[in-house]
């Protein structure tokens, strides 16, 4: 199975329910309501769902329009909305050495696994990544990252148990310079967006990074769980305001969830989508494609 077909098949699992909702009906006014419901079902949120449904209601479709035409029209609209935020994380200038990547997010979103996936791609591209286990809070988080670093044979650094993560990050950046690591990937502890003390800790990590290299971190990635509903908004808002983020990676999109809140998130916060996670294997990190995503949402 090629890369592309895997994403499609992963996303298609979600679109089944939409196609069932709409297929087989002739185009009529009720369709607007059905479209709204279908969009709500993929977590697009009431506002976006109403807005897009209104587009359908307001548009003068010719008489012979089928539901498939409407879906295609809507998929185009969604694609147009999201296209500006489609960004391949790996298509950027990684030449600054060491290139520091800070990975943040709430608990259980898939930060550690995603870091391993990123490191693997960069290693294949000839880079020498260093994985830094700055999640000194969760039990065995360090071991989890260590396992991955062994599996893909990249360098790994951790501190003592319950060590100050900012201190560890400082020594990691020094270590990268002497060890010749041109990529530093920092795994941080999961934290809820309303825990101001933990966000302060993250701010401190960022300040420490800046002390060593003012241009760093060169990329701060927020990991979003594809299964999360409208709470993604407060996550993006808080992390953006407090820490600053360059883009998001959305994980667990191989299930039946579709992360429809992305449609409004990208516009509202101007946030790029760097990649999507579509499985537990090391190569299950795929570029985000607005067209595929829109089609999958509409079940085409």
């Amino acid at each position: 199975m090629g890369i592309f077909s895997k994403i499609k098949s992963a996303l298609q699992k979600t679109s089944e329910k939409i196609s069932i909702t709409i297929t087989g009906k002739k185009f009529d006014e009720n369709l607007a309501q059905e479209i709204e419901d279908a969009l709500i079902l993929v977590d697009a949120g009431v506002e976006t769902a109403t807005e897009l449904a209104k587009k359908i209601a307001d548009k003068k479709f010719p008489k012979e329009t089928t539901d498939m035409d409407v879906k295609k029209y809507l998929a185009d609209e969604i694609e147009k909305l999201m296209k500006p935020y489609e960004t391949d994380f790996f298509h950027q200038d990684f030449s600054h050495a060491p290139f520091v990547i800070l990975v943040i997010g709430v608990n259980g979103n898939g930060k550690t696994t995603t870091i391993a996936k990123i490191a693997n791609v960069l290693k294949i591209c000839g880079k020498k990544p260093l994985l830094v286990a700055a999640d000194t809070f969760r039990a065995a988080a360090v071991e989890q990252l260590k396992h991955w670093s062994d599996r893909i044979s990249v360098d790994f650094l951790c501190g003592k148990e319950k060590a100050d993560p900012a201190g560890l990050v400082y020594s990691a950046l020094e270590h990268a310079k002497t060890n010749g690591n041109d990529i530093v990937l920092i795994d941080t502890a999961g934290r809820m967006q309303n825990r101001s003390d933990l966000l302060d800790e993250l701010e401190k990590i960022k300040r420490v990074i800046k002390k060593i290299d003012d241009s760093a971190p060169h990329s701060t990635i927020l990991i979003l769980d594809g299964i999360t509903g409208q709470a993604t908004h407060s996550q993006v808002e808080t992390f953006l305001e407090k820490i600053g983020i360059d883009g998001v990676i959305v994980t667990k999109l191989d299930g039946s969830a579709k992360a429809g809140s992305l449609i409004s998130l990208t516009r509202k916060y101007g946030i790029k989508i760097f990649a999507i996670g579509v499985g537990e294997n090391i190569d299950d990190l795929k570029p985000f494609n607005a067209s595929d995503y829109a089609k999958a949402i509409m079940g085409i």
Binding site: I40, L41, V42, D43, V106, N107, G108, M192, Q193, N194, R195, I227, T228, G229, Q230, A231, S234, G255, S256, A257, K258, A259, S261
Partner: peptide, 28 residues
Amino acid sequence: GQDAINIAKRFSESLKISGIILTRVDGD
């Protein structure tokens, strides 16, 4: 999010689920 419906259905259809634990209730 809305995927709760699929999760709930599949898990309770396949297994004898007897209760729910909700996590991260300290979030907003």
